[in-house]
Design a protein around this nucleic acid. Structure first.
Lengths: 237, 237
DNA sequence: CAGTGGTCTAGACCACGCT
DNA sequence: GCGTGGTCTAGACCACTGA
């Protein structure tokens, strides 16, 4: 069972996906939706806000809710989407090579990133992602050991996140991403098929739990030609 | 004059910025804030949602609103921020070189990007951005002429956006961004100080008006070492 | 258990667009 | 002027946290 406003959101989103409402059309007005769903206007408005955040509609005061052409966005819309996430969604054959999975002490860079002292333990996991026969992404993950006491190579080969959420009951609540381009390191050269590229696109990821503590720092090194990011940004206010 | 919830948001954000509420602290409960601001709870909740979206707090059910350490984020937080936007905010001396500012017909690529027919007019504006003495960003903007009838080099040297919003009363409502890395073109080599770099990071920008029509397509070509993007993403639901 | 945030209601008035 | 979405109110009940 779900929230009322979430159910209404899903139903309207579904209608738009199926083409019952076409791009450029106006949705029924909020008052009409109140009658249709036998609910209050604030609940309808929450559903419409979800539609808006997910790129289904654009609200215009005094006019109505315009249905957007979501097909133009050949991509999932909300937030950022990386090449790997996309490949996984598309069901492309992705293989993971685990090069490192050990407990270690943080170096000074990591101490700063994870706000740790020199003596605390961190898990270091290094994995290469092979998609369509090429190793194009190198992921370096660091977990605060106080939150992640135990890991195995097997878990690293599968999804660490599934393990954290299902086994350890950790809930990720938000993340900060940063993207830069730097020279490929010797690790990158060793574990990736760089095809002569000398640069890699690095996506740094700071992941927070729902009590707002930082517990993971990740760097994803992408081969430049296989890097792609998409974002969908509503204007402030 | 502003919305009530926006004023409350600003006041609370201000207190956090000034350190009256320290990271890890809990804000007053929603009921207490209702009394303090003599308003309704939904209004308080709208203010708190804004704080949450802007990275000031993290809400935890049954517990309260935790103040986050926003200083860790040495960057503006909401949405994506490019190097140029940052440089401008920091007040660094940015110079704009206008290389092109003319009306032309869209080529097939542009027809596809802007959903135009071959016969419609577009403004083509090409500008190099010089920051701290180096030309590091090449912006190529294309505007649907039906929305932007008139432009001058002078306007291009200043802010086109200020002109669109203040003079033409166009309101930008949302944008889709896409980032890829490609080989530097001859234009890039001619108009940028590439320092030997053979690649550029391209940020493609599709900008929509508040009636959901697409009116601008922009490509920003960044020198790799001067490219930096930041994002702050709340987890879905 | 008391206190917190999450959802929901049934109103009200305002700001805007259209014609 | 009428219909639209935007803001705001004063309640209510539920779900979760922590002592």
């Amino acid at each position: 069972m779900q929230n009322k406003y979430y159910l209404i959101y899903q139903e309207l989103a579904n209608q738009i996906d199926k083409g019952k409402q076409k791009p450029g059309d106006l949705l029924p007005s909020e008052h009409e939706l109140v009658d249709m769903y036998d609910t209050s206007r604030e609940t309808i408005r929450k559903a419409l806000n979800l539609l808006s955040e997910h790129g289904y509609i654009q609200k215009v005061q005094g006019k109505g809710s315009i249905v957007l052409d979501r097909n133009k966005f050949d991509f999932p819309i909300s937030g950022l989407v990386s090449f790997r996430e996309l490949a996984e969604k598309m069901g492309q054959d992705a293989t993971t090579h685990v090069h490192q999975c050990r407990v270690t002490k943080p170096d000074s860079f990591l101490q700063k990133q994870l706000k740790l002292s020199r003596n605390e333990d961190v898990w270091e996991v290094i994995r290469a992602r092979e998609i369509a026969g090429e190793r194009i992404i190198l992921d370096k993950d660091y977990f605060d050991r106080r939150y992640v006491p135990f890991l195995t190579e097997e878990i690293c080969r599968q999804s660490i996140y599934a393990y954290l959420e299902n086994e350890l009951n950790l809930t990720i609540s938000f993340a900060r991403k940063e993207m830069v381009v730097i020279d490929a390191s010797t690790e990158d050269q060793k574990w990736l098929d760089l095809n002569g590229y000398k640069l890699v696109v690095v996506v740094k990821n700071y992941v927070y739990l729902d009590d707002a503590t930082l517990f993971q720092y990740t760097e994803s090194h992408h081969r430049p030609d296989k890097f792609r990011f998409v974002d969908f940004a509503r204007r402030n206010r």
